[in-house]
């Protein structure tokens, strides 16, 4: 075959332009996709007043209502014992609650669950230590419905005035990768709220 070694320093501009014209927009679109979660259906509550609730505490010490927590930013975590990623998320929340406990209030709301099973689960997860924040029992799932919980875990960030500022769908998971580390993400959101 004839080896075309002719010194023709030709650049095929049409090929170059068409090629870049097709690939660069594609790359741009894919890049933008990384900043959106397709499973996130939006949070209709954002910047709205958080739905009120008064729920019994798991530890039996009466009830707790959102009004009682006004004045401090409140982090509400919906979870359940049957949820797969909750055991991994729990230590992250525990640690954050111990660290930021005097500035913010963490509340766990157990969704579709039973108190005996919740107590046993927490006992095991905390290795016998007392929980760093209270867990409430959402009888009939009414509070979860009011907040628009799609699945567990979901975490709502309510500011001191009782306005929903942020919602996290899915768990805060620890990871060695800083871009995926839920601990850092939680810290960042807390930082924005304080």
């Amino acid at each position: 075959m004839n080896v075309a070694q002719t010194p023709k320093p030709a650049i095929s501009w049409p090929a170059l332009l068409v090629g870049l014209g097709l690939t660069l927009p594609l790359l741009g679109i894919l890049l933008s996709g990384l900043f959106h979660d397709p499973h996130d259906l939006g949070n209709p509550l954002e910047d709205e007043t958080a739905p009120r609730f008064t729920l019994p505490r798991l530890d039996g010490q009466g009830t707790l209502s959102l009004e009682q927590l006004r004045g401090k930013p409140t982090i509400i975590n919906f979870w359940a014992t049957w949820c797969q990623s909750c055991p991994l998320e729990h230590p992250v929340l525990e640690q954050a609650a111990r660290e930021f406990g005097d500035q913010v209030q963490f509340v766990g709301i157990a969704y579709e669950d039973k108190s005996e099973r919740l107590s046993a689960w927490l006992q095991r997860a905390n290795r016998g230590r007392p929980s760093a924040y209270p867990t409430l029992i959402d009888v009939g799932g009414k509070v979860a419905v009011a907040y628009g919980v799609y699945g567990v875990p979901e975490t709502y960030f309510v500011d001191a005035q009782g306005t929903v500022k942020h919602k996290k769908t899915g768990p805060f998971l620890p990871s060695a990768d800083p871009t995926a580390d839920g601990r850092l993400e939680l810290r960042r959101i807390l930082g924005e709220m304080l």
Binding site: K8, I11, S12, A15, L16, T23
Partner: peptide
Amino acid sequence: SVLLVGLRMHLL
């Protein structure tokens, strides 16, 4: 790939 094609295509 685009650069390769743009710079070398004329040889083919």
